[in-house]
Amino acid sequence: HSHMSHTQVIELERKFSHQKYLSAPERAHLAKNLKLTETQVKIWFQNRRYKTKRKQLSSEL
């Protein structure tokens, strides 16, 4: 499990705020920019979407 830097997370968050789903080319581009693997980016987005979904569910209770 590799640790992401604060800067990388900020960039991922910024991208996520604009779009929740990335196409393969977008993911490849973002990964390259942030010096991450595409898998890391993919998993981060999956986890981030899951967290957002959970938060929405709990706020509706």
Results as ranks from 00 to 15, higher is better:
Thr52Ser: 12
Val9Glu: 09
Lys20Ser: 07
Ser2Met: 12
Trp44Ser: 02
Leu57Ala: 13
Ala31Ile: 02
Lys55Phe: 07
Ala28Trp: 05
Glu38Asp: 09
Met4Asn: 01
Lys15Ala: 15
Lys15Arg: 14
Gln56Asn: 11
His18Asp: 10
Ser58Ile: 10
Lys51Cys: 15
Val41Gly: 00
Phe45Cys: 04
Asn47Gly: 05
Ala28Ser: 08
Pro25Met: 14
Ser59Gly: 14
Ile10Leu: 12
Ile10Ser: 11
Met4Gly: 01
Ala31His: 01
Glu26Tyr: 02
Pro25Trp: 12
Gln19Glu: 03
Leu12Ala: 01
Gln56Ser: 14
Lys32Gly: 05
Arg54Val: 09
Ile43Gln: 09
Gln46Ala: 12
Glu60Asn: 09
Pro25Asn: 12
Ala31Lys: 00
Tyr21Gln: 04
Phe45Arg: 00
Arg48Glu: 06
Gln40His: 02
Gln8Asn: 02
His18Glu: 14
Arg49His: 03
Leu22Ser: 00
Leu30Lys: 00
Ser2Ile: 11
Ser23His: 02
Lys35Arg: 10
Tyr50Glu: 10
Lys20Phe: 04
Leu22Tyr: 00
His1Met: 10
Ile10Pro: 01
Arg54Phe: 08
Trp44Glu: 01
Tyr21Cys: 06
His18Trp: 05
Lys55Gln: 14
Ile10Cys: 15
Lys32Phe: 09
Val9Asn: 04
Lys35Asn: 14
Trp44His: 00
Ala24Asn: 07
Ser59Trp: 06
His1Tyr: 09
Gln56Arg: 11
His6Glu: 08
Ala24Val: 07
Arg14Ser: 07
Leu57Lys: 14
Leu22Cys: 09
Tyr50Pro: 03
Lys20Val: 06
Ile43Phe: 07
Lys51Arg: 13
Lys42Gly: 04
Ala31Tyr: 01
Lys53Phe: 07
His29Asp: 10
Glu60Trp: 08
Gln19Ala: 07
Lys20His: 08
Ala24His: 08
Lys42Val: 05
Gln46Asp: 06
Lys42Tyr: 07
Leu30Asp: 01
Arg14Met: 08
Tyr21Trp: 11
Pro25Asp: 14
Leu57Pro: 15
Lys51Trp: 13
Thr37Ala: 03
Gln8Gly: 02
His18Leu: 11
Thr37Cys: 05
His18Phe: 09
Thr39Lys: 09
Thr39Gly: 07
Leu22Met: 04
His6Ser: 08
Leu61Phe: 07
Ala24Trp: 09
Ala31Gly: 02
Arg48Ile: 07
Arg54Leu: 11
Gln46Val: 08
Ser17Asp: 07
Arg27Cys: 06
Asn33Gly: 06
Leu12Tyr: 02
Glu60Arg: 03
Gln19Tyr: 07
Lys42Pro: 00
Glu11Gly: 07
Val9His: 11
Lys42Thr: 06
Lys32Ile: 09
Thr37Pro: 03
Leu22Gln: 01
Met4Arg: 01
Glu26Arg: 02
His6Ala: 12
Ser17Phe: 15
Ser59Tyr: 07
Lys20Glu: 07
Ser23Asn: 06
Lys32Asn: 08
Ser5His: 04
Ser23Ile: 02
Arg54Asn: 13
Leu30Gln: 01
Arg49Gly: 01
Arg49Ser: 02
Lys35Ala: 09
Thr37Trp: 03
Ser5Tyr: 05
Pro25Glu: 14
Ser23Leu: 03
Leu30Ala: 01
Lys32Val: 10
